[in-house]
């Protein structure tokens, strides 16, 4: 049996609007193996969250998967009905979002929410499920579990709430976790605790993780591989140490250069001129060419694409842009 948990092929997500069809995700192909953390990074509007939502089957209408296929451990999931997808979510795919309060019901004790989720997805009885909930809370690092299990979400701090959400996502031992900006709302010292926790749990359980974030630092710390997105397309895919240290795509290089470094003494930060195009005005050819210093005639004409590791850039693919 292959250890590929998630396989996304040529995914395209569209939003029909009055002004025409907007393509939020275009021709995205990627895989995640068992126990692997794939970081999806990009700036706002790059399509990284949209890719995660498409995998979860949570695209808001009129958004829709226009073409491509998503397989979870060999089973095709993008063609399932909402009802069937609901069963997959929770049991086989866990989700962690930026704001832990959106994943928790404010009116129920956290212990009851955990028990409910565990019983929904497993055959455990009430007492067993409660014991399991306690174990999970301990595992995600909640102190004084016996007291806290009967607390309401508002009685926890932001970091503790996110730990509960992680426990919820792990309830049914899913094969895949989609974590969309799980640390963005947290303070830096708590951020490090949460990423370390996510990393440890996935390593121990062999869970595949798609970590969606705008923060290259979080990716560098946590992910095994990185997929950089720009204007709905993959710009670069590779092992984290390669992408961070030797970025091939001019956009990735610019992104890395614009992060204030703790080591360099540069007076000026490197800038990428301009801004990412809006979805209704994505340029012809390579979407990055108007901001790229290496752009040549080919970049204006044809879209560079990648299916696996590499950079979607004519310069990287063919060595020239003529």
């Amino acid at each position: 049996m292959s250890d590929i948990v998630l396989d996304v092929r040529n995914l395209r997500v569209e939003f029909p609007t009055r002004k025409g069809i907007l393509t939020a995700v275009d021709d995205v192909s990627l895989t995640i193996r068992k126990g692997e953390i794939l970081g999806m990074v990009g700036e706002s509007g790059a399509g990284k969250s949209m890719t995660g939502m498409a995998i979860l089957g949570l695209l808001e209408p009129p958004g829709r998967i226009a073409s491509g296929a998503i397989h979870l451990s060999g089973d095709r999931i993008d063609t399932l009905s909402d009802r069937e997808m609901q069963d997959i979510r929770g049991r086989r795919i866990g989700a962690i979002f930026q704001d832990p309060l959106t994943s928790l019901n404010p009116l129920f004790r956290v212990g009851d929410q955990l028990v409910e989720t565990i019983r929904l997805h497993t055959d455990l009885g009430k007492a067993q499920a409660r014991a399991r909930a306690r174990d999970l809370m301990r595992e995600v690092g909640i102190p004084a579990v016996e007291e806290r299990i009967d607390n309401y979400p508002h009685q926890f701090s932001g970091g503790m709430r996110q730990r509960i959400v992680i426990a919820l996502a792990l309830c049914a031992e899913p094969e895949l976790i989609v974590a969309d900006e799980p640390t963005t709302a947290l303070d830096v010292s708590i951020q490090a605790q949460i990423t370390a926790l996510l990393k440890r749990l996935c390593r121990e359980r062999g869970t595949a993780v798609m970590l969606v974030t705008h923060d290259m630092g979080v990716i560098a710390e946590t992910a095994d591989r990185v997929a950089v997105m720009y204007a709905g397309r993959l710009a670069e895919v590779g092992a984290v140490e390669d992408v961070v240290r030797r970025p091939q795509h001019p956009y990735t290089a610019g992104l890395m250069g614009s992060i204030p470094s703790l080591r360099s003494e540069a007076e000026e930060l490197r800038m990428i001129p301009g801004a990412m195009p809006r979805l209704d005005a994505i340029p012809q050819g390579c979407a990055f060419h108007p901001r790229c210093e290496h752009a040549g005639p080919k970049c204006r004409r044809a879209v560079p694409r990648i299916d696996g590791p590499g950079a979607a850039c004519w310069l990287a693919l063919e060595g020239e842009t003529a």
Partner: peptide, 12 residues
């Protein structure tokens, strides 16, 4: 807590 981009995949 600042992630180090020059030394990725650090275990802390």
């Amino acid at each position: 807590t600042i992630p180090d981009l020059e030394a990725p995949k650090r275990d802390r």
